[in-house]
Nucleic acid binder design. Structure first.
Lengths: 343, 343
DNA sequence: CCGCCCGTTTTGAGCGGTCAAACGGCGGTC
DNA sequence: GACCGCCGTTTGACCGCTCAAAACGGGCGG
């Protein structure tokens, strides 16, 4: 079945059509400067031989790689939407004939090496850390990139997309308040200082705007169900325990949820519980877990747009969508629907 | 900071070291045929200019792509270990200087196109379906590939790796029997006839070997918690309900677990429940869910080995590891530890 | 009838490497 | 001293494509 000698080359097509190789090239890249008759004839030859230009050769001549580097993150926390992000990112780049190329090395040296080898044209940084050194290095070396996630307090080098955690947390507070909740707690994460800071700020701002206290605050030691339960225990120990809890992740929320039940309280009725990311877990807990769905598709699309437009250090915040379930049966408003319309 | 004119070329290094370009090439590819003194001098020049051979040019000359195609699956079911697989696969290929290149198209034509463009050297097929047409096409066209998962009943074209579902299910039955269980049920999936057939067979074989009945069998309509619950309801309706359930996935097992509790029974005590894949969910249910951990690392390593050895249509089955938790507190034996040692 | 212009096609060079053959200097053999 | 083989190095060609400049040929105005 395999064509003898592998795929056809531009020369073979040229020979077959009785023209020079450049004419074949023109048919593909600048058809307007080729006579319609020849164009037709060359087209037939291309069809007949099943010709597709050799990517490698083409890229060499064009001094590009046609590839976007993406470090595939070690799944420390089962961040359920990163695989969807990767899929959508791949699809997005394909629209312009580029592909995502994976690698694993963590250090800046790995990025430097890929650049030196001309293995990729640009990078998408996803597994960002606090004050990530890669952003600075890439910006300094004029390597195009886009960051999924903010990591630089103050001005961050290069373009980025991220969830507007502040806005969605503010809205969560509003919706919980609509439900009659007035003691709304927040469960964050210890050890990742900047990471969910905007969510915390949004929660605080929401409380303040409604004249609610914002002193019910606990930090989990890890992103696990157990740590979430422990944090909730702390909150329930206080004199006036919360009647609603916003947790920064689904595992933590599940832990909170479980602890609520353990203490003989009813989640969703006595204590409302919300999580983040709308992971598979969210449908595992009985009654379902209210969560915030990340606009993954828009993340991917925006990332590619930012990379291509290349207009400086622009950052884009996208709204999350509240997914209401039993653990906090909030009623969404017009605003919620409009803001988070694109899941 | 960026080197003017981009990364250095082999010519620049040659000039810098006062040798010809071929000598530089030899230093990198066949150092033994270069005089140690020159080798040293060229090495210094390489260091000084930070030279790294252009991947594109090198690959063009070598008529290869240095890339392995991997279709990033649409996450229909949150198969929590696929992202780990991808990570490990990437790491494994990096050992030999290759990278994983992603794409999304599903059809055979997409594969044909990538081959025609010489965009990749080989494929790893992961999201396999029943009687997958890709295997046959790739084999017929002499395109190297390896499959993660069996899909062809009878003889499957090309090499493959898969979980030995029969063996691990047989062992599950043994361990549940050790726990005193004698009415061991099996919850499969409707609509994917061949997919978990080996697990079903292993369960049946295990039951038969112990003279236990193997008629307690239910099929879930989808891979969800709800469907698992529904299937369990059917099983519990029978005259003599099961005292143990092996479900083919964690979501199903969670559904079973929940249903057990709903009927006032104690999971792990009255009814033992086991799942598959050891997903994050497994630690969400109270007491933990006993599950089968897939040997993802060995999958990746074996896949790459098979691809490179290229000795025909060999298939490899790898053992799963039983992870014991509260839902079925089985005691693992020497055999279990030996077989499934590499998680 | 000639020269010019324009649209179309071809030729040459180069992208940055590698392979293969040619080359030059050296010591050993007859 | 001529010849040989060997080692280390260089030169030429090529991988498959694109860009830029040159060549071609027909229509047209002078």
């Amino acid at each position: 079945m395999a064509r003898p000698g592998g795929p056809a080359t531009i020369r073979q097509v040229a020979l077959h059509a009785g023209v020079s190789r450049q004419t074949v090239s023109n048919v593909l890249n600048a058809p307007h400067r080729v006579d319609p008759v020849t164009r037709e004839r060359v087209g037939t030859a291309i069809e007949a031989l099943g010709y597709r230009p050799n990517r490698n050769a083409r890229n060499l001549a064009a001094r590009r790689a046609g590839l976007i580097g993406y470090r595939v993150p070690v799944q420390d926390t089962p961040n359920s939407f990163m695989d969807r992000f990767l899929h959508l990112l791949t699809a997005e780049f394909e629209r312009s004939g580029r592909h995502v190329m994976l690698f694993t090395g963590a250090g800046v040296d790995v990025y430097a090496d890929l650049v030196a080898q001309r293995a990729v044209d640009a990078f998408v940084l996803a597994d960002t850390v606090e004050h990530d050194p890669r952003h600075r290095w890439l910006a300094d070396h004029d390597v195009p990139f886009v960051s999924f996630g903010r990591t630089w307090s103050g001005c961050q080098p290069g373009p980025w997309v991220d969830l507007d955690g502040a806005a969605v947390c503010h809205r969560l507070v509003d919706r919980l308040h609509d439900l009659g909740r007035s003691r709304i707690a927040f469960v964050g994460r210890r050890g990742v200082p900047g990471r969910f800071l905007d969510r915390l700020r949004g929660w605080k701002a929401g409380c303040t705007a409604l004249d609610l206290p914002s002193d019910r605050l606990a930090f989990a030691e890890a992103d696990t169900v157990e740590a979430g339960g422990a944090a909730m225990r702390d909150l329930l120990d206080s004199e006036v325990p919360p009647d609603a809890v916003i947790a920064v992740s689904d595992p933590l929320a599940v832990g909170v949820h479980r602890e609520v039940r353990r203490q003989g309280l009813r989640p969703g009725t006595d204590v409302a519980v919300t999580g983040f990311d709308d992971s598979p877990m969210a449908s595992v807990v009985d009654g379902g877990l209210t969560s915030v769905r990340q606009p993954v598709e828009r993340f991917a699309r925006t990332a590619v747009d930012l990379l291509d437009s290349a207009n400086g250090d622009r950052g884009v915040l996208l709204p999350g969508r509240i997914v209401s379930r039993g653990s906090a049966p909030v009623r969404l408003t017009e605003q919620d629907v409009n803001e988070g319309e694109s899941g």
